[in-house]
Write a protein that binds this DNA or RNA. Sequence first.
DNA 1: GATGAATGAGAGTTCATTCAT
DNA 2: CATGAATGAACTCTCATTCAT
Lengths: 206, 206, 206, 206
Amino acid sequence: MTEKNRRNPKQARARATVDAVLEAAFQILEAEGLARLTTSRIAERAGVSIGTLYQYFPDREAILLAMGQRQSDAMREKITSIILDAPEAGGVRAIIRALMHGLQGSAETRMVLSDALFRAGGEAEVGRQHLTFLDSISGRSEFDFVLGKESSFILTHAVIYLLRAAAAEPELNLDPDKLEDELVFLMESYLGNLAARSDAGQFSPR
Amino acid sequence: MTEKNRRNPKQARARATVDAVLEAAFQILEAEGLARLTTSRIAERAGVSIGTLYQYFPDREAILLAMGQRQSDAMREKITSIILDAPEAGGVRAIIRALMHGLQGSAETRMVLSDALFRAGGEAEVGRQHLTFLDSISGRSEFDFVLGKESSFILTHAVIYLLRAAAAEPELNLDPDKLEDELVFLMESYLGNLAARSDAGQFSPR
Amino acid sequence: MTEKNRRNPKQARARATVDAVLEAAFQILEAEGLARLTTSRIAERAGVSIGTLYQYFPDREAILLAMGQRQSDAMREKITSIILDAPEAGGVRAIIRALMHGLQGSAETRMVLSDALFRAGGEAEVGRQHLTFLDSISGRSEFDFVLGKESSFILTHAVIYLLRAAAAEPELNLDPDKLEDELVFLMESYLGNLAARSDAGQFSPR
Amino acid sequence: MTEKNRRNPKQARARATVDAVLEAAFQILEAEGLARLTTSRIAERAGVSIGTLYQYFPDREAILLAMGQRQSDAMREKITSIILDAPEAGGVRAIIRALMHGLQGSAETRMVLSDALFRAGGEAEVGRQHLTFLDSISGRSEFDFVLGKESSFILTHAVIYLLRAAAAEPELNLDPDKLEDELVFLMESYLGNLAARSDAGQFSPR
DNA sequence: GATGAATGAGAGTTCATTCAT
DNA sequence: CATGAATGAACTCTCATTCAT
């Protein structure tokens, strides 16, 4: 609405500033790494003064957090839309594919941002992040048993952390398609046996 | 031997100094985190001067690396002895147990140290670290098929990174015993289906 | 102008800071010598924080260089104006007088600063510095012969380095006026014989 | 004498140690420059412990001074022998040649060592160094007039400092032979006019 | 005498953050 | 609101020197 824009010119400018800062920070993180991601460099690249930057972000950490949340939100949206668009499709593969291709940025960037999310959010953030996955499989009739905390943890973390590991070790030269296949296979194996176990109530004893 | 001690008083002192530095660094890392792990603080806690510290470690990074290698060596020894002592026992569970209990230190400590290993070693270190796992299952007759790079990656990284994730999120309050069970279950599921797949040559298509 | 000041309050402040730093550095160099010319001491004496100092100078060396350039610029201006104001006056004496009285600071100060200039500028700086001298005599009709590289070197360096030596040995208690006379005499002797030699094409054989 | 050596094995060893230290220091100064000339590096290269080094030299400066004195002594000997061997030859050229070829080491080495001599010796050292030159010309009948302090200064310093300047600016690519010629010419011009002036008692007025 | 581990003051430098303009 | 000069605590690292062995 023009009305809205005219009424809050400051908010519009503010959003532009925030965007510029986050975009600048992202570029620097990609190009130069966390060590060179200084507040002054961010401000400079964003085309704002350091003072202005601090008017929108209380400290450096807040910038990292906001970047992480952007990534996280984008990912969540992507996964959600995948599930909504093609609910019949293999949910596991769709989600894994989203996780693999949905995050932009280098290995270091992804790590830095997810670290920031952890630092800031702890439980709450983690919950927000991974509920999506659980939701996506909860509709499938074969998983209408109750998952233990630990099983949920594995379901929601295995793929993400393996992707992180893969990103951290580019020298392994893993084939993305094959890795996707294997991750799907890993999770399908686990989910399949989980269902079987819930029927039988047993598995290999300790 | 008194002889030995008398002969190498310097080497004995030197080793004591190195130990004191690494122990001090470990304590600080545990208690205050990486950000507060400064060389001067380490020296102070170790009861040596900052100059002495730098006589044994060329820079801060070298201290982290040495700590990481200690952890890594201890872990490797533990896994090896587990396999040697009880080769008939379920290799997967034994190794997972070793991984879970073999590393001391908080979540951040473990992360920091494994990060240091990555930084320093790259591929070589990674290889060294994970071959143990592959070796341990390579003897089992049902796995005498050839593993792809990506499958090997999953076998060697899934547990470690899930444990890292679990450590990073203490607020999830995961039960260590149940987590162990689930990790075993995850890996056994994967390995089992991997064997089946190698027979059939097929799995859920892309 | 108030206008100017109001328009560029920052640049004015910045210049003041730079001046304060250079002035402080000069005083310390004079009073305590190069060894005690530390960045923190400079900042303290200049009444600015160490951080501010580093906002204007990338490192300690840059401060020395800036001081050297100030001296050098002042000297060049002085020589130029001398030549312009009284071109008919004995060029050699005028220049020597400028060299003697144009540089402020103790012997060590002068040495340190000219060393800094050498380090930074190498050939270029040296050229810049000494062209002035050659220019000043190039107008005199009796020197319209071509000077060899080595003769030029002597003409441009003898006085400067002898003054440096004199400054380095204050215990010799040389009389400035007499020294000036001798330097003039030295250079006039050389120039005179140079002219004679260029006519005859000979001098004492090797 | 074997006797001497047998009687004072300690003194012989001491001299060897001192020699080793000075030789090591010289090599490091040549190869790596003053900034890398640390006491520990000297000791290491000399094959002695740092403690031993400090038994022979009270501090780092003393090492530099000793090196400077060696150079200086060698130079003095060379000049003396030149004059003794060929007193009839042009004294000025002989001495200049000795000065040019008698000092070993790079430009920085020479500067560092002569700086050390200045620092330590002040007047006394300077006197010791330059009397040789004055002595060498004092025998020539045409110079039996009394030289002023300032003239002596120029006679004894001009060549040395011009050579130092030439060494400091290798990019000028001065031809050593031509430079020698010019220095001889400079000094002969000065000396010649000095003699003439002493007869007439006058020169270009201030 | 010889050793070399230990010392520690002090160097140069960085950067998140503040606040007067 | 925007600015960016100023801040200064904190950092990593060096090296001449000492002294217990």
